[in-house]
């Protein structure tokens, strides 16, 4: 195969909300050895009858084309849209970040959280749970900053993405 560069792609998939549909999508990736860097799914349309899956994946341009064609081939898939290809898009995720500590590190963590517009959604005298929404890079930066300040646990949603402008999937 050609030595093409790896590219990252954000793919939005609108699926019929039926049992097994997520397993089909995941099985497609695992069965053919493709990467899933992030995957989110929730009902979005048609009274809950349609779900949207957002997948972040990487591969050569040929592999990304394959992934899209294979996704579209699945019977319960309505639409497949490569957000990285059709134009600019917004991609956001949410993270819950637990920091444990007292004294100066605790104050520093709170100060940084304010700067990042993270909300403390749970506080005890010895811990915080911060909620932070934003681009994945912003979340990663925040996590890195929390590491020396008592970071103990991270829970991330994975990205939700949508095209900018009036265009829809």
């Amino acid at each position: 195969m050609q030595e093409d560069p790896q590219i990252s792609a954000v793919i939005a998939v609108l699926v019929e909300n039926e049992s097994g549909v997520l397993a089909r999508v995941i099985g497609l990736f695992s069965g053919r050895g493709y990467n899933i860097e992030s995957l989110t799914v929730a009902p979005v349309e048609d009274g809950g009858n349609k779900s949207r899956i957002n997948i972040v994946t990487s591969g050569t341009p040929m592999v990304i084309e394959q992934i899209k064609a294979l996704l579209y081939r699945l019977v319960p898939v309505h639409r497949v849209s490569d957000l990285t290809q059709i134009g600019p898009h917004v991609a956001r995720e949410m993270a819950l970040i637990k920091v444990v500590g007292t004294g100066e590190p605790r104050t520093e963590a709170l100060r940084l959280a304010e700067a990042f517009r993270a909300r403390a959604v749970d506080s005890t005298t010895g811990s915080f749970v911060f909620e932070l929404t934003g681009a994945s890079e912003k979340i990663e930066t925040f996590i890195d900053l929390m590491r020396p300040l008592g970071l103990v646990e991270v829970s991330r949603t994975g990205i939700a993405a949508i095209a900018r402008g009036p265009k829809t999937i």
Binding site: M62, E65, A69, R73
Partner: peptide, 11 residues
């Protein structure tokens, strides 16, 4: 007839 067969192995 299967779009995923195209460019799968040979460009």
């Amino acid at each position: 007839i299967d779009a995923s067969s195209i460019n799968k192995i040979v460009r």
